[in-house]
Amino acid sequence: MPHDHPHAHNKPLSDVELRVKALESVLSDKGLIDPEAIDLIVETYETKIGPRNGARVVAKAWCDPAYKDRLLTDATAAISELGFSGVQGEDMVVVENTETVHNIVVCTLCSCYPWPTLGLPPVWYRAAPYRAKVVKDPRGVLEEFGVTLPEDTEIRVWDSNAELRYLVLPKRPAGTDGLTEEQLSELVTRDAMIGTDVLAAR
């Protein structure tokens, strides 16, 4: 874990650290950023927003058919019903996994990602091998994540962009009939909502 507390020896700041500090000084001098707002954003993304927001959306859709309809029709509105909305004002689209269709999400250009529901993207999502390979060989990528789908399952790959972000609505795992919405949300993994995981039966 990186840590901030001072040591008896000084480690010189790295080039990138100096550049970020320079940006911070220049931009706050001009009143274009507020250092307190910066700290708040860091804290929010590091600790508060994570895949749990998305998991709550998924669990609610599993339990409430009317909500699921709204989610699949107008995901941006349905997700903001739960208090989650995009910092960039982008639109959300939710794609549903079924017996015959599996969805998987990528951003081939950079790493557009639904931050308000999933937090920040994992390293592999940002990496070129995933971005390039998932389009050409989604089944191979799924195998690498330990997921094997039936031969006849159709795999749909969704390419995110600056205006549109996708979230996968995974299939509700078998054997979860008696669980509450909250318990269900605990079962939903981040990767299942990107489409690189399927939720195992309980």
Binding site: V20, I38, V42, L120
Partner: peptide, 8 residues
Amino acid sequence: WEAKAFAI
């Protein structure tokens, strides 16, 4: 620094 660059 990565978090800070992101937040800026």
